[in-house]
Amino acid sequence: MITRPDDLPEEELLLSGTRSCAGCSMSLMYRTAIKALGKNTIITVPASCLTVLHGLYHKQSVLVNVIHTTFETTAASASGIVAALEALGLDEKITVVGFAGDGGTSDIGIQGLSGAAERNTNFIYACYDNEMYSNTGTQRSGQTPYMAYTTTTPHGKLEHKKNIPMIMLAHNIPYIATTCASYPLDVFNKFTRAKQFKGTRYIHVLAPCPPGWGYPTHESIEIGKLAVRTGIFPLYEIIDGKMFLSKESEPYLDPRKRLPVADYLKKQGRFKHITQQHIDTYQEYVNGQWDFISKML
């Protein structure tokens, strides 16, 4: 576990010249995550912003092996890779990772993910959650939060986010973690820890998206931190079924320490239209989420 930015490995596996948008927090997170995963990693990626990020021949921006798969098949593709590496006796040397967006994880890809987790396939599945289909121009996904504007929820989404980490918990997998792109050390530590387990490991990363969420590009880190400080996005690990709150989120177990959700919502264009009533509903939802977490601890 590292505690200072200086402790991050110096070698960059994600190079400059990615094709991501200005202020993309996913690319920052990805840079840190693959530092933790190391060079001997095979990453399988479905249709998503991450596919775009990797660049076009001959300007590839990544130094690990990446295979692009169809939208619904991240975990299925990983299953095949893992099985082949095991058959070839290479599985001890190489880490297999499925890296998908929130739509690719919680909507179209959940069947493959559930199947792979049920077989306890030996791989890490990472979901970078920008809470919408950002790559096709910001449509709603199962991870879009309550009242957020997207092009297919023009009056705000009526449903809350789907709780994928809890769905993964129901699969009895050895390691589950949530993290946020605003906390690179937490990202690094959780990917490093995930590597130490065998079987299916799931990491859910909140990745604020400036064009999709409607805030200035320099505020990505701030927005992600607010998601944690308001308690909207709790950071935790679940190891063999036992939940541990991460130190970034620990203070917010106490409701008095949580910032009001409005502090987070009002900074983003996608929540521009919301009323006090919506804010209250949102706050209640967040409080309920923490009641649940406190029972899990």
Binding site: Y133, T136, G137, Q139, T152
Partner: peptide
């Protein structure tokens, strides 16, 4: 529907 380029403006 489901978003996919280049048809997404139809659902939008």
């Amino acid at each position: 529907g489901y978003p996919i380029t280049p048809s997404t403006e139809v659902p939008e």
